Simulated scan of single mutants.
Amino acid sequence: MTIDLTGRRAIVTGSGAGIGAAIAKTLADAGADVVIHYANSEAGATAVSESIVAAGRRSIALRADLTDSSAADAFIGEAVEFLGGLDILVNNAGHLVGRAPLAETTDERWHQIMDVNATSAFFATRPALPHLTASEHGRIVMMSSLASENGGGAGSVVYATSKAATIGFTRALAKEIASTSVTVNAVAPGFIGDTPFHDTFTPAEAQKNIVSGIPLGRAGTPQDVADVALFLASDLSSYVTGQVVDINGGLNFR
């Protein structure tokens, strides 16, 4: 069965590289027009957008600091104006920022990590809601993590906390807006290789050790996550809301 998103309009935050880029391209391959959001990766975001346009869909890359509510409001407004409405919001923007024991974590670092992973999703979703509820196919896909359940690797207490917060947000919002038929679900990736996240924060030897413990015998790929996001963004998931889909090769069970 082929998923057809022709005519759907999507925003994917943090889509200049890695999982976000894969999700944006996958939605576009299914027929959606996609706004690419980035904070720092301008070159990557521009390349993703250009590849979508080259494939025959509408796309634009927009920069915004989604940890600032005014900037998020402006970004959503500009994105919706470009798209002519909104059907799909993928809140993928996030970052580990850095590893540190809790005792060495400053107030500033706590707020920085919580803001980029949890607050940014709130700031993006709030102005997007009126447009999503006006759609007959409103979908919100949140990005959580295996860390939300197992606590993550060393020095990631705040990151794990922020990703657990996205699950609470997902479930509460799903209930709150269920009467509008907009669905809200989350994906929780485990170890996903070939991404800036692990290339930056997880040493090569540690990556090998993680992969050796995955029952399916390999690291996940950005496409593994994108395929699940595509399902959650489609009509095939119309009776699925408030759920968290684990994508970890059997490494952990919720």
Rank of each mutant, 00 (worst) to 15 (best):
G7E: 10
R9A: 07
R9Y: 08
R9D: 15
A10M: 13
G14W: 07
G16Y: 05
G18M: 08
I19M: 08
A22F: 03
T26L: 09
T26P: 05
A30T: 04
G31S: 03
A32G: 03
D33I: 05
D33V: 08
A39Q: 12
A39H: 10
G44D: 00
V48S: 00
E50M: 00
S51N: 01
S51Q: 09
S51D: 13
V53E: 11
V53A: 15
R57M: 07
R57I: 01
L62Y: 13
R63I: 07
R63V: 03
A64G: 03
D65E: 15
S70L: 13
S70V: 12
A72D: 08
D73I: 15
A74H: 06
G77M: 08
A79T: 14
E81H: 13
E81K: 07
F82S: 05
L83M: 10
L86Q: 04
L86Y: 05
N91H: 02
H95I: 11
H95C: 13
V97Q: 04
A100Y: 11
E104P: 01
E108V: 09
R109P: 11
Q112H: 09
I113N: 05
M114E: 10
V116G: 09
T119V: 06
F122N: 04
F122Q: 05
F123D: 04
F123H: 02
A124P: 02
T125R: 02
P127Y: 02
L132Y: 12
L132P: 01
A134K: 12
S135W: 03
S135A: 06
E136H: 05
H137I: 01
H137F: 12
G138Y: 00
G138L: 06
R139D: 09
I140Y: 12
V141M: 08
M142H: 07
S144E: 03
S145Y: 07
L146E: 01
L146Y: 05
E149D: 13
A154L: 10
S156L: 01
S156P: 00
S156E: 03
V157F: 15
T161S: 10
A164V: 02
A165I: 14
I167N: 01
I167P: 11
T170F: 00
T170P: 02
R171D: 03
A172D: 08
L173K: 02
A174I: 00
K175Q: 15
E176Q: 06
E176D: 05
E176K: 13
S179L: 08
T180K: 12
S181E: 13
V184C: 02
A186R: 04
V187C: 00
A188R: 08
A188P: 14
P189F: 01
I192M: 11
D194R: 00
D194A: 00
T195M: 02
P203T: 06
A204T: 10
E205M: 10
E205N: 11
A206D: 11
K208S: 15
N209V: 13
I210Q: 15
I210D: 12
S212C: 13
G213R: 14
L216H: 15
R218C: 05
R218M: 02
Q223W: 09
Q223T: 12
V225I: 12
A226K: 09
D227S: 15
A229E: 06
A229Y: 11
L230F: 07
S238G: 13
Y239L: 10
Y239P: 06
V240P: 05
V240W: 05
Q243K: 11
V244W: 03
V245Q: 10
N252K: 08
F253Q: 12
